[in-house]
Simulated assay, not measured.
Amino acid sequence: MAHIDYFFTAISPYCYLAGQRLEEIAARHGATIAYKPLDMMALFARTGGVALADRPECRRAYRLQELRRQAAKRGLPITLKPAHFPTNPAPAAYAIIAAQAAGGGDTGALVHGLLRACWAEERDVAEDAVIRDCLTAAGFDPGLADRGLLAGAETYAANLEEATARGVFGAPFYITDRDERFWGQDRLEDLDLHLAGRL
């Protein structure tokens, strides 16, 4: 059975624009997914990435146009400058880690729900109430927001170390069990073709 490790952050607009296409692709090919949220700013510091605030104006302006176009292409609502971006993604990441470990709900729906909360609903995914709402909507116990914080923090840090060791440098980033790497929501079609044996 194929497997995909998905490295991401709960506040990336490009992760939001992926929608739930990863889950659709995995279902089509009988693949499993491991969700690995991580600290993107720490990853950037290790891999040569540049924080949005430190990018030249021409790159920031292009990013806004590209987000608008990609959202329209995918039929996803988007707020280009949401009220709660950037925010601390760690609380949402800990909830995702706890939910994945606990089971009983839809982890992909949880991840997308948190991203949608930020990019379409202008909600702060660092807030406990928002996290609880997203857990509930994805079929999880909202109490997971309060449990496993230490384990969540440890896994969050471990995901960063693993990502660095495996060549991850941005988000979304997908790695198959055969170490084929795909960076960006615009490479999901290539991941699909790869799993079909056509790339």
Rank of each mutant, 00 (worst) to 15 (best):
D5H: 07
T9Q: 06
I11N: 02
S12T: 06
P13D: 10
L22W: 13
E23C: 07
A27F: 02
H29M: 05
T32G: 15
Y35E: 11
P37A: 06
P37T: 04
M40W: 03
F44G: 11
R46K: 15
D54H: 10
R55L: 12
P56T: 12
E57Y: 05
C58I: 09
R60C: 10
Q65F: 08
Q65H: 14
E66Q: 12
L67V: 09
R68Y: 05
Q70E: 15
A72F: 05
K73P: 01
I78L: 13
K81H: 14
N88M: 08
P91D: 11
A92I: 03
A92C: 10
Y94L: 14
A95M: 02
A102C: 05
A102D: 01
A102I: 02
G108S: 13
A109F: 01
G113D: 00
L114W: 00
A117E: 00
A129E: 14
A129V: 08
T136Q: 09
A138K: 11
P142G: 02
R147C: 04
Y156N: 05
N159K: 01
A163S: 07
T164Y: 12
A165C: 06
A165F: 08
G167P: 06
V168W: 03
P172C: 03
Y174S: 04
E180S: 12
E180R: 13
R181Y: 00
W183I: 09
D186V: 00
L188E: 03
D190N: 10
L195H: 08
L195T: 06
G197N: 07
G197M: 05
R198T: 09
R198K: 13
